[in-house]
Write a protein that binds this DNA or RNA. Structure first.
Length: 615
RNA sequence: GCCUCGGUGGCUCAGUGGUAGAGCGGCUGCCUCGUAAGCAGCAUGUCGGGGGUUCAAAUCCCCCCCGGGGCUCCA
């Protein structure tokens, strides 16, 4: 925002030619005049967009200050785009100018010249020392990150790192064997956008009654129906169990933090994100965007010996909040409230960090494979590294690529802009060729000091640890997104789409042929497997179809034959039809889901007792 | 956040100034069925919200909300 303030004997204007976006004005407003006033020429700029409140507030403060200085109560607000070479959109500018006008009205006698016209004007400047002032106003404040600005300056170069340890500039690399890596690279570097349709997982998450938008909340805050909640909850448990097995201590920390806390304040500057801001009765707080704060603040107050290292803390954040730009939000892929498992490891130095990172690399692999993703086939490895770290630790990166099992994309930064020197991500490339990070781990050399986290080394000296930031699965919602996108991809290949058996809300669907077979079904008792009964008064064909559309892995039709023989006719989702006893079926399912968490069906067993959440 | 397209019954969508529609789903009844949609009848509506123009608005205009796509962004 740029403004020019002119203390004048009078100003007189006349609107001449109207522009496309001009505001409507009554005829008498086309011409106006004001005596003894402060004329405020305003140019709203591109960078002000989205920050109207702050800009308006600061601009008005500036105007008031000057008006008091020159001792006038008359103000003419004059939209005047020519002060800036990077003006905002007319729409935004008009709203901003109006907001300034409205706000000044309570204290001043204000007029506003019309927006969107070529205007003739006459102005008589008083010419005293304070009569002409220009001001530049920005929305930048303590809660706005500086990391983003720095990111623009830093130079990044792109390579492919092969299993043999060759670092090949992306332009010279032959992608013919790695089509998916090519897609990922294009997405990362060229920001290529092809598809112009809704991501397939959105229709699926709604139709399967898993997840849905919640218009009554803020965008990017979703609702989970019982089946969606079940799947999410199983995934959460799976990740948590594995992280605890790895040796992490699960904790719980608050979701909101004080803006004025010194460590947090400087951390915010290093993290390019917008936060939800909440006014509590006595302070302004922001909602956490990761679990870092809680864990760091906790360890700041802890007594740590080198014997305790590596020290691992874990929290499943429900939720982490990031106010992503409206247009970036998309289904389960990018949200404003999401569930992120976040596991920090505190280690003595870089060497230990590298060792620990490899342990976690294997942990993440186990978790992702359990979830139903094939590693490395379904994901693409990206590494972001500073030139300095690469030069000193080349072997470490090569070792990681070998462990991964196929080439990785490397982004090399000329200097360090974030708090980490190295991070890797496992990215999923979806049906629209868009990429999203799932697993990610980082080596952070800054926050040990920032949060004043100390451990005592062998010699009795206090030291700041190096910190690793791991999300072993990535956001739980993103796992669901990847699984749905993967299922959709299967269906395009002619394979029946499905979820992993352990995540299927209904594992066995029983369909009685007629009412008399219900008694048989009402008497069965199965533990440790989720089953339900389609007792609706519909034809068999229709009920089979509906079970298939729900992706139910085992469908069992029960008629006279089954009641008599106790041998079930089982329709399996892979297309097979098998005769087996109930016992064998249950054993098979338990066998196939061994080692995975189990939860009960969170719905009535009889379909006639269930509401339809979506239709 | 910007640009752009969209929002009509629970779902999918037709209707573009003049009496709100269809299919699916729901309900009721018939049918009692052997592996992907049986038949009939009934009820479904702040036409996303607010304001305006008009004798008259789902339809035209303005603002807002929600969603899609693009830009931007992606720790």
């Amino acid at each position: 925002m740029r403004i020019l303030l002119v203390h004048s004997d009078y100003i007189e204007y006349e609107a001449k030619k109207k522009l496309d976006f001009a505001e409507k004005i009554p005829e008498e407003k086309r011409k106006d005049r004001m005596e003894e006033c402060l004329v405020v020429f305003v140019s709203v700029e591109k960078r002000d967009e989205g920050k109207m409140e702050k800009i308006v507030e600061r601009t008005c403060e500036e105007i008031k200050k000057t008006a008091d200085l020159v001792n006038t109560k008359n103000i003419m607000v004059y939209p005047y785009v020519h002060l800036s070479s990077t003006p905002s959109s007319p729409k935004f500018a008009e709203r901003t100018v109006n907001a300034i006008y409205e706000r000044l009205k309570s204290e001043f006698n204000v007029k506003k010249s019309p927006f969107g016209y070529y205007k003739a004007f006459k102005l008589s400047c008083k010419g005293h020392p304070l009569s002409e002032l220009s001001r530049e106003i920005t929305a930048e404040g303590e809660e706005v990150s500086e990391a983003l600005k720095k990111e623009e300056k830093v130079k990044s170069s792109w390579y492919i790192l092969t299993e043999k340890g060759e670092l090949i500039p992306v332009k010279e690399y032959d992608f013919s064997e790695y089509e998916n890596l090519k897609k990922f690279t294009d997405y990362e570097i060229e920001k290529r956008r092809v598809a112009e349709r809704e991501p397939p997982h959105v229709e699926l998450m709604q139709r399967l009654e898993l997840v849905d938008y919640e218009p009554g909340s803020d965008p990017g805050n979703l609702r989970y129906y019982p089946k969606g909640r079940l799947i999410k909850s199983l995934l959460e448990e799976w990740v948590t169990d594995n992280v605890i097995d790895y040796g992490a201590m699960e904790i719980e920390a608050p979701i909101m933090y004080d803006f004025e806390h010194p460590s947090l304040k400087s951390y915010l500057h290093r993290f390019p994100a917008r936060q939800y801001v909440i006014q509590t009765p006595n302070k302004r707080v922001f909602l956490r965007f990761a679990a870092c704060f809680g864990q760091f603040l906790m360890l700041h107050d802890a007594t740590i010996s080198y014997r305790n290292l590596p020290l691992r803390l874990y929290e499943l954040t429900r939720y982490s909040f990031r106010v992503e730009q409206r247009g970036e939000l998309s289904g389960l892929r990018r949200l404003r409230a999401f569930t992120m498992p976040d596991c920090h490891a505190f280690v003595a130095d870089i060497e230990n960090a590298k060792e620990e990172m490899m342990v976690r690399f294997d942990l993440a692999k186990k978790i992702q494979e359990g979830v139903g993703l094939d590693i490395p086939e379904d994901l693409e490895l990206a590494m972001r590294v500073t030139e300095d770290f690469w030069n000193k630790n080349r072997n470490f990166l090569v070792e990681m690529v070998k462990r991964w099992g196929k080439p990785a994309l490397v982004e090399m930064w000329s200097e360090r802009i974030f708090y980490f020197v190295f991070k890797y991500e496992w990215n999923y490339v979806d049906n629209l060729d868009k990429a999203s990070a799932l697993t990610t781990d980082q080596i952070d050399i800054e926050n040990g000091k920032r949060y004043d986290i100390k451990y005592t080394d062998k010699e009795g000296n206090e030291r700041h640890p190096v910190i690793l930031h791991l999300s072993p699965s990535g956001a739980i919602e993103r796992i669901m997104y990847a699984l749905l996108e993967k299922a959709y991809r299967d269906s395009k290949k002619g394979i029946k789409p499905s979820l992993p058996l352990w995540l299927s809300p209904t594992q066995i669907r029983f369909i009685p042929i007629s009412e008399e077979h219900m008694k048989f079904l009402e008497n069965i008792r199965i533990e440790g497997v989720r089953y339900d009964i389609d007792d609706r008064n519909e034809t068999l064909g229709k009920r089979i179809r509906s079970a298939e559309r729900e992706w139910i892995p085992y469908i069992v039709v029960v008629g006279d034959k089954e009641v008599k023989s106790k041998v079930l006719s089982v329709r399996i989702r892979n297309g097979e039809n098998r005769e087996m006893t109930l016992e064998d079926l249950v054993t098979e399912i338990k066998e196939k889901t061994k080692g995975k968490p189990f939860k009960k069906l969170p719905l009535p067993i009889k379909l006639t007792k269930r509401p339809i959440f979506r239709g």
